[in-house]
Write a protein that binds this DNA or RNA. Structure first.
Lengths: 165, 165
DNA sequence: TTTTTAGTTCGGTACTTTGCGAACTAAAAA
DNA sequence: TTTTTAGTTCGCAAAGTACCGAACTAAAAA
């Protein structure tokens, strides 16, 4: 008897904590460039027990209008962070975190680093004095980036998705 | 004679290109979360030949008001991306890119990754079903992060600032 | 002491972003 | 065929952000 009461207490407390975490993650994602509503949707999909949320559930849980949900979900989908699945005989969309695995995230980071290196190259090319403090600094950064990219390559080799489960 | 003319042509063309690059970098930095004015100041400090700019020079070059410059420079300084130096007998502040080297940038990245791992841990802790698709996914990501951190450690060891110049 | 220099702070305007409700569409159910 | 369901698109109001000019401060120069 006692145990059951404790257990229900725990469950509701757990859900309280989950909801708080949804808001916290929302704020984090805002800093990452997502709009508030999108951030909280992401939080919801990350922390709650349910694996797949319908459009309506998202509207209810995050307490937003259908239009806001529609816009935010489309953006999140375009960015590739969420995806939706459908089931035969059911018109609803079931949203969930997309299983874009680490590899594609790493590729994104790699591309970003390479773009930065190109930019640095351009800047140096346009400098009058190629021995200035700033050019030295940029070369240093650039070499560091080359190192970094090499290590990423090794990392990708060592990383075998199936061995991680 | 011919050569001299060509040389002056090149110089002005170079400066034109630099100014275009300042604007371009400004727009890039906006995407990174800086306000427009701050982004263009960063661009200026990165691409132009001058190593150190006074407050007034920045106001003139970026064509902004003193108040905007003051606010933007303070923010950039708080974020640690620029710094200013002073010279004895000169009241002016000379702004330049801060020489935060790769190591501190790497440490920032490391901290960020560790914070993400903590968050994932928290989320998993609050999940009812620890064997769900999402928990599996999160564990995978988390393990990937551990790998990543180890490689960063190795990278830091291999990286010897003085060997890069 | 007064003036100039080198900035900072404040208040307001203009622009941008966010999120809503209402009207709409397209498919399924009645 | 009409109604309901599941969502989308559009226009607008509220909130937030960026930037400016004007007034201010504190130190140095005249």
């Amino acid at each position: 008897m006692r145990k059951i009461i404790l257990k229900t207490m725990d469950a509701s407390e757990r859900i309280e904590k989950q909801k708080a975490l949804v808001e916290y993650i929302g704020r984090m994602q805002e800093k990452e460039g997502y709009q508030p509503v999108a951030g909280r949707i992401l939080g919801l999909l990350m922390v709650m027990d349910k694996e797949e949320f319908t459009f309506e559930e998202i509207v209810d849980e995050v307490k937003i209008s259908k239009s806001s949900a529609s816009v935010a979900l489309r953006n999140l989908e375009l960015r590739g962070v969420i995806e939706y699945v459908t089931y035969p005989g059911d018109r609803k969309k079931y949203y969930r975190l997309s299983t874009m695995d680490l590899e594609s995230t790493l590729n994104e980071i790699e591309k970003k680093v390479i773009r930065s290196m190109d930019l640095i190259e351009q800047i140096i090319e346009l400098k009058e004095d190629k021995n200035s403090r700033s050019v030295d600094f940029m070369r240093k950064v650039s070499k560091g980036m080359v190192f970094f990219l090499n290590h990423m390559k090794k990392f990708k080799k060592t990383y075998e998705p199936n061995m991680l489960l």
